[in-house]
Amino acid sequence: MAKQAVSFTLNGKTVDVLVEPRELLIHTLRENLNQTGAHIGCETSHCGVCTVDIDGESVKSCTLLTVQTAGSDVKSVEGMATADGLHVIQQAFVDEHGLQCGFCTPGMLMRAYRFLQENPDPNDEEIRWGMSGNLCRCTGYQNIINAVRTAAKNLQQA
């Protein structure tokens, strides 16, 4: 199948890729653009380890065609930290021991990043609901909830 040229913004920089229409965004990010932060866990849109942020919404990049992202603003975990250091949410994950094997972490962080903009002051139940598209096999979620709560507090103080 003929490849198509697609441009979008990734973490603030314009990228141009040449892809088959059927190519999934997760593969473009990982194989083509060498951004391997987002992972592949289920491929059926259940686990959320492939979560990135597109035009202000959390999206599972295993269930999106790269051609669909033409002109979009895509953010991935690689764009979270800045020259000034870690993002408040990243630091909270370290402080609250919100990760173990780290495989779910990029997706978790990207979802938390968006969730805390949707709901800056969530209670635990809201965190559970708002993060429910991301699975973790290691932590039992409890410390991730603590991390999101801590991040919310620190973001509000910042």
Partner: peptide
Amino acid sequence: VADPQVRNK
């Protein structure tokens, strides 16, 4: 329906 990410699409 589904979960937050799926509901966004």
